[in-house]
């Protein structure tokens, strides 16, 4: 199959960028989108042109590295899919595909399609951990967790930190990311000691960098892990609760 690509090229963080048109005449419908980029880059290198820089790592949908705005959607038109798991059979022969980097003030473009997502690391650093004794692993099932709660915590923990929520959000908000990272700890007994402190710290850090939520639902629709908006509601509740809570009595539910 043949595809026409319009890709954002930008040689450095401060350079002006522009769209460039490329044609891939010999794409296979079984290729992933990243493999299409590989084929294009090989072709560019053969011609002596600079290949297109893009982030990628595991290529099996679990690392969160690949980040591209494809035809105006984060990770392309498919739901619950990362760019590396998006296959060319989802596009028509002769399709025109526009590829742009994530756009957010906190995610500056480093080069071409690569953006700096370290603002997410700042959020995690501010509270995305629990206090646990190091040493031998504790016996299993010492702390009982209801099955439904464990499942919800796991659903939140599925976040791969790709930044699609920020990219898709009309406000560049990182609420879904922060809510997922908070919820997977705040739901479990092990996360309770720092629950309110963590919520306030991580939300404050998030609000330094990102926009605010207007409940469009774009984030959840773009999320390759289909993380629920309910986690955002939980974060909002915990944040406001933390403001009113007497922390000395925080163990009282």
């Amino acid at each position: 199959m043949q595809v026409n690509l319009k890709i954002w090229r930008q040689s450095g963080p401060d350079s002006p960028g522009a769209f460039h048109n490329y044609e891939v005449p010999n794409a296979s419908p079984d290729m992933s989108f990243l493999e299409l980029m590989d084929v294009l880059n090989e072709d560019l290198q053969t011609k002596g042109e600079e290949p297109i820089a893009f982030d990628h790592d595991c290529r099996e949908g679990i690392c969160g590295s690949c980040a591209m705005m494809i035809n105006g959607r984060a990770h392309g038109p498919e739901t619950g899919t990362t760019t590396c798991q998006l296959h060319m059979r989802k596009f028509a022969d002769g399709a025109h595909i526009t590829v742009e980097p994530w756009r957010a003030g906190a995610f500056p473009v480093i080069r071409d399609l690569c953006v700096d997502r370290s603002a997410f690391d700042r959020i995690i650093e501010s509270g995305g951990y629990i206090t646990a004794p190091t040493g031998t692993a504790p016996d299993a099932n010492l702390i009982l967790v209801p099955k439904e709660v464990a499942d919800s915590a796991m659903d939140a923990a599925a976040c791969i930190g790709c930044g699609a929520c920020v990219a898709a959000c009309p406000n560049s908000a990182a609420q879904l990311f922060t809510a997922a990272k908070l919820s997977h700890l705040n739901l479990l007994p092990q996360g309770q000691p720092e629950r309110y402190k963590r919520t306030v710290s991580m939300v404050n850090e998030m609000e330094r960098w990102f926009g605010s939520c207007t409940n469009h639902g774009e984030c959840s629709a773009a999320c390759p892990k289909e993380i629920s908006l309910d986690f955002i509601a939980m974060m909002n509740r915990d944040y406001v609760k933390a403001q009113f809570k007497q922390r000395r009595f925080a163990s009282q539910t």
Binding site: M69, N71, R73, R103, G105, G217
Partner: peptide, 24 residues
């Protein structure tokens, strides 16, 4: 706050999946 959070807008057309007329 939200305007400041995206100083450089998308240069290609966005395709919204969930936002509706009322929310936008």
């Amino acid at each position: 706050t939200n305007r400041k959070a995206r100083p450089v807008r998308y240069q290609s057309r966005r395709d919204y999946a969930a936002a509706n007329f009322a929310s936008r």
